[in-house]
Design a protein around this nucleic acid. Structure first.
Lengths: 113, 113
DNA sequence: CCTATATTTCGATAATTATCGAATCATTGG
DNA sequence: CCAATGATTCGATAATTATCGAAATATAGG
């Protein structure tokens, strides 16, 4: 992972509404949520939410797919894990230490069970 | 960990020079580095470096202690781990997944061995 | 094709942030 | 107490970012 990617991701998460949106998506799992649903949940105008979701997407933290008239956003767990790996890289002065482990996304079918 | 704390920490790391400084400190271990040494290493004027180190400190990501005329900065591993824990909290839609593990700081004495 | 729905883009404004030289503050040693 | 050293604060400027209404774009259904 490159420093610039990390900076963009950190910047994306360094904002009240984006952090809230990302957590919402992390909890929603791979099924994701429509842009409008996120906006409503967070009490933001659609245009503001769109701005923030675009930043999260540009930072690679979320994916988007169209589903009929809605655009569904979902957290990208791999990116999140990559971010954490970058932070802990070479941690503790090179001494062996418990490094960060990955978080596996739940597939929608499994979530439904 | 509170959302505001996380936002401040993310914002602190969302900047080229601060991210570089933090990584430097993470690698330096508990022994830390003097403000001037960090500035020199990163090729920044002292006043700019001081500005960035203050932000990292305010975000709780680094600690500072005076040692004679120098002020020594060191990474706060607990804060870093807390940040990662917050990101992975409730991840994967509540399903069991590999959550983030902690990174233990190396004590200076051990580093010296 | 027209209307309704979902979302994004535009534009203008307000607020925050980064930068660095100069001045200031704290500590040490003579 | 004075000079030297290490770091921070101040001040002014430039650049980036957040906000939200209005307009534009895409899709679906009658």
């Amino acid at each position: 992972m490159q420093a610039n990617t990390v900076i963009r991701a950190m910047g994306a998460l360094a904002q009240e509404h984006r952090l809230a949106a990302f957590r919402l998506l992390v909890q929603a799992g791979a099924e994701g949520m429509a842009a409008g649903a996120i906006a409503e949940r967070l009490g933001l105008p659609a245009s503001s939410m769109s701005f923030h979701l675009a930043q999260l997407a540009h930072a690679g933290l979320v994916t988007q797919r169209r589903e009929s008239r809605s655009i569904i956003y979902a957290a990208d767990y791999a990116a999140m894990n990559g971010l954490m790996a970058y932070l802990t890289e070479n941690c503790c002065g090179g001494l062996p230490c418990e490094d960060a482990a990955a978080c596996q996304p739940a597939r929608p079918e499994e979530t439904a069970l």
